[in-house]
Amino acid sequence: MTEQPQYSGGFQNAPIQAARAFRAAMTVMARPGEIRELNGSRPPDPLSIAAGTLLLTLCDPETKVHLAGAVNTDAAREWLTFHTGAPLAQAADADFAVGRWAELGSLGTYRIGTAEYPDRSATLIVECDELQQAGAELSGPGIKGTAQLFLPDVPALQANAALYPLGCDFFFTSGDRVAALPRSTRISMET
């Protein structure tokens, strides 16, 4: 038999695994700076387990997905299409985008919502080498006092936060770990 990797690596028990995965995703989005384990899928390289699990949990034929740079491979496209049915899209139309920070390109390309519907904005899944609770200082909703999280590009993310209530929201993924940064978080550089 020829290997057909696009058919494997999905949830074995979708209702249960998606529920657990969503709980982790919701927890990090509600508590910026916190890091949680997120697993259940085995996506093709170079997608991380956490990013693949987020895609399976949140994407379906109703969401446009942009695969940026190195994750935009035949294997990843086929895997995503087979397991979620999500249509692929350019950055400007995407509901979800996945890739490394440098390959996702300028944040200005992505949808930031409208004044009356700020929810109609893109969610970016940023693949990172590692997640660290050190670096930029975060404050705002979901954070008691302040929290620390390493961010790929503080000025760009500060500019995104300044658009509030518009703006993109972010998941940071590395291996089977996830953190998040909603647009509502205020960011300052640690001195």
């Binding site: 209702p15 994407c59 379906d60 929810d119 969610t123 929201d169």
Partner: peptide
């Protein structure tokens, strides 16, 4: 599952814009 995904996406956006 598709309904739950739709609701979950709404919850995440709701948390992002309290």
């Amino acid at each position: 599952e598709q309904t739950k995904r739709m609701i979950r996406r709404a919850i995440l956006k709701g948390l992002a814009v309290p």
